[in-house]
């Protein structure tokens, strides 16, 4: 029935998925690090509420996130009006829209490992740096960051893998456009709907292998999640 394992449409879905996950992981590391640092260090009463907000996507069904993003990014939604005023147009059905949705969706998977890593840095290490008259920023980059390295590895792998595994949100705001929003999970769904089970198998097997290797790498190089 088929000559090769993956059709060109499948390959472009795979490439798109990796591109999406890579961009989202980089953005998440950039915005997740300060959030995690703050959550790990603060004594503010806001710690609880902010932590809960960050964790919301873990418990919310993807349909809730998809529905609200679709409405909010639509022509009369607040985000949609903002993007239109800025001359960007509307975000649903675009790669940028998927990036924003995925940043929401995968946020806790990056913030929480980082927060754990920052919390496990002994207070003394930071105090010592301070007595050596290191600035706060210097302390962060030369003491905290190296000590939290395993946390960054966990956060990157989980953020990346979780974005690759995204389906419900993409189905609701993606519009299934080749090379823009048709990621692997959606492509598999289409194959199944069209009863192309052989192609669905190929892509699904690839996903299983990818997920296993990613997690295996994580557990092998990062056995306890933190190094004492």
């Amino acid at each position: 029935m088929m000559d090769s394992a993956f059709s060109t449409a499948d390959l472009s879905a795979i490439w798109l998925t990796f591109k999406l996950a890579a961009v989202v992981t980089i953005i998440l590391l950039l915005i997740g690090t300060p959030i995690a640092w703050w959550l790990a260090r603060t004594r503010s009463w806001l710690k609880g509420p902010v932590g809960a907000m960050v964790a919301l996507p873990i418990v919310l069904p993807p349909t809730v996130i998809g529905f609200y993003l679709l409405v909010a990014m639509g022509s009369s939604g607040p985000l949609g009006q903002l993007t239109q005023a800025l001359g960007i147009g509307l975000l649903p059905f675009t790669f940028a829209g998927l990036v924003i949705a995925s940043v929401f969706y995968s946020l806790p998977f990056v913030v929480q490992p980082l927060q754990n890593a920052f919390e496990s840095i002994p207070e003394r290490a930071l105090e010592t740096a301070a007595t050596l008259r290191a600035s706060a920023l210097d302390t962060f980059f030369s003491v905290a960051l190296p000590l939290a390295k395993p946390g960054f590895l966990t956060a990157s792998v989980l953020g990346f893998a979780h974005t690759v595994g995204e389906f419900g949100v993409v189905l609701m705001i993606g519009g299934n456009i080749p090379d823009k929003t048709r990621v692997v999970s959606v492509q598999i769904y289409d194959h199944v709907e069209a009863m192309e089970y052989a192609q669905a198998h190929w892509l699904s097997t690839a996903m299983v292998v990818f997920a296993f290797v990613a997690l295996l790498a994580l557990y092998t190089f990062n056995p306890t999640g933190r190094r004492k």
Binding site: L70, V71, M73, G74, S75, S76, G77, G80, L90, P92, F93, L171, I173, G175, N176, I177, Y189
Partner: peptide
């Protein structure tokens, strides 16, 4: 310019929410 709904009701919903 085409965006694809999972079924015809989702296509209608894309228009309803002002995204198409």
């Amino acid at each position: 310019k085409l965006v694809y709904g999972e079924n015809v009701a989702q296509a209608a919903q894309f228009v309803q929410t002002g995204n198409a």
